[in-house]
Write a protein that binds this DNA or RNA. Sequence first.
DNA 1: GTAATTGCAAATTATTTGCATTCCT
DNA 2: AGGAATGCAAATAATTTGCAATTAC
Lengths: 145, 145
Amino acid sequence: MSHHTWNYQDALRAQGYRVTPQREVLMDLVCAARHRPTAQELLAAARARGATLDAATVYRNLKFLTERGLLRAVEQGGVARYELAGPRAGHHHLICRGCGREVEVAGEEAEALFEALAARTGFRVTSDHLVLEGLCPSCAEDARS
Amino acid sequence: MSHHTWNYQDALRAQGYRVTPQREVLMDLVCAARHRPTAQELLAAARARGATLDAATVYRNLKFLTERGLLRAVEQGGVARYELAGPRAGHHHLICRGCGREVEVAGEEAEALFEALAARTGFRVTSDHLVLEGLCPSCAEDARS
DNA sequence: GTAATTGCAAATTATTTGCATTCCT
DNA sequence: AGGAATGCAAATAATTTGCAATTAC
């Protein structure tokens, strides 16, 4: 399956690593997921899809793929969740603690904010994926009752 | 020991909860800690200090104290770390991934940033404690070699 | 006295590691 | 072939839960 816009397979092979079915199923699942899956969710999903793989393999590969820059790990609620890193721009998420809805913010939008921080503290933020909590417009509305 | 500027004991008693020695030792330790301690660190520290308490009690109370707004939990590197919440303003941290140094940013400083986000997305950020990663001035310098 | 809390032990959940075997390239 | 990667099983580590015993108020 090579429906990915980016061919990570060759990138790996070029570095002497192998493209195993386990790695492919993980990449496919992370790619197809609507929300960021955890290692456990990926294991279950992979098996549901008929793949044969062990939890240890999932953990080893998520770490491997993250180190190679193909995936990105985000801590959320104590567990690690994964998403495609790929060759695209960083971005951030706003999670509404009212309805759980998630809004994405382009990296550039946030850059301006980080600029301001850098100017004031000299500290350059490199996080390319923040998860901010707050209230979305509609829940903010409800909160007034 | 009531060296805390804020008397949380009465606040608890007023709500029908008890002030146990275990709870006090936890509050004292979090208060005295230089860096945010984890549940395990608190357990060890409490015992080193001669206190008698179980891991389950530590977890139960950290959760309890956090729910009552006395402590605040921050996820960092997969584990929960705690700090005093108290009646003070929220703030944020910048952690340098070069030297590990930590810089604190007052809540007001960041408010401006959140304002900008709200204006653009309608989303109001309520996180009162972000942990941003980046490079401090001195490490940014070294990175150029 | 009595309900809130604790301790202890056992159960969960997430993740890691050693090692022999398998399988990409 | 030959090293990379997997599976399996066992080891950690962090956290949770049931329940009887304890204790703060």
